[in-house]
Design a protein around this nucleic acid. Structure first.
Lengths: 212, 212
DNA sequence: ACCGACGTGGTACGTTCGTACCACGAAGAT
DNA sequence: ATCTTCGTGGTACGAACGTACCACGTCGGT
């Protein structure tokens, strides 16, 4: 029965199983047996495609980041160039919020990896994966474009606002994850700051020192 | 030799050992034997004062939160009422940043607990510990006082800004923790937003649409 | 002066984990 | 048609973990 099988596809499926069980029982609690059972294969198979647990975890992180990048890209494309850079930024930030179950799982597992990487050097030394500067650069560039199109308030430091928005998004995301805050509430906060940064378009609002 | 010993003190010392080893090897990797060795006592002793590992972890979290509350209170008192509410808020936010080794350890272990609590119900059901709304209320109240003293810009939503500052502080703290950002950089970002919220005092700055 | 509880040590038990080992059927290569 | 490699299963092993058990000295109470 052993037809030649696609290794990459199999590894991906196992990695998906890893993320699934990690999102249910916590990354610290995943064993190779759990992953095998979740993927519907034998323990030996997991051993076969990933020789060691460390490699399995590494690939799991890689898979996770790729899936997330695709998700963000899809959302950005959906709210694409037709509705301007603000819509794009909004989509980018909202995609980072743990709203549905998929992004909840992503946030949880990714944060687990991040915490793990502080004490585990094998995880910390992943240059291509651990690249959060990319998000910062992307957001900064989007804000800069908006600035050149005269869409943002004068005197705004785009780099600093990009960092602020991302930090806020991360912090709010964690709050939502632990159940302290609702996704809607987090979205409201982020939108408020976008209102502050961007030129008021149509309706004036809270942050404006309303001259009336 | 067994003189009557202070249980609370002993438990505290063991909890401190727990936090210490958790900050070095990661919370997921701490065993009772490690804690015992770090505290300089026998495994049996750890068993004696905390019957089970779960209780040890719970007490460790409690200890961690108390120590942090003391730390923040001390800093707030140090930059106390003499320099106004802004200095107090600044101290509160800066104390939450992982600058020295102690606050680095706190951030790491606390985040580990938070991540753990998402999948572990025994940890999630800790009502008195898991109270981050307290920080939000405190900060909101401080901002409201400042607002009544005419120290903040008009039209500022203090509740929303409190949430924003805390979320930013948390997000920046994580960035600093994983080595992506320097503590100084994070402090700069936070100070920028305090400048934005508070009335300009003395030197005008970036966010002001400088009327000159 | 006795006695029961306290503080402490050592160690053994059962489980679970990651990994290694052995076996075997089925396909592609020669 | 044979042979080597690939995919797969089952299982065993050593280590580490949390917990339970047993033993012993030393205080406080009466």
């Amino acid at each position: 029965m052993p037809k030649r099988v696609d290794h990459a596809e199999r590894r991906t499926e196992i990695a998906k199983a890893l993320v699934r069980v990690a999102s249910h029982r916590g990354l610290h609690a995943v064993g190779m047996r759990d992953v095998a059972a979740e993927a519907g294969v034998s323990l030996r198979l997991v051993q076969y495609y990933f020789e060691t647990k460390e490699k399995l975890l590494l690939y799991g992180l890689q898979h996770l980041v790729e899936r997330f990048a695709e998700r963000v890209a899809a959302r950005s494309r959906a709210a694409g160039d037709d509705r301007g850079p603000r819509a794009m930024i909004e989509a980018l930030l909202m995609a980072s919020l743990p709203t549905d179950e998929e992004s909840r799982a992503f946030h949880l597992v990714y944060t687990s990896y991040a915490v793990l990487a502080v004490t585990d050097q094998a995880l910390a030394a992943q240059p291509f994966i651990w690249n959060p500067d990319a998000a910062e650069d992307t957001l900064t560039e989007l804000l800069r474009q908006a600035q050149e199109a005269d869409l943002v308030q004068p005197g705004v430091d785009v780099q600093l606002e990009a960092v602020s928005l991302l930090a806020m998004s991360a912090g709010l995301g964690t709050s939502v994850l632990v159940g302290q805050r609702s996704p809607q509430s987090a979205a409201t906060v982020l939108n408020h700051h976008l209102d502050r940064i961007f030129q008021t378009s149509g309706n004036g609002s809270l942050t404006q020192q309303a001259r009336e």
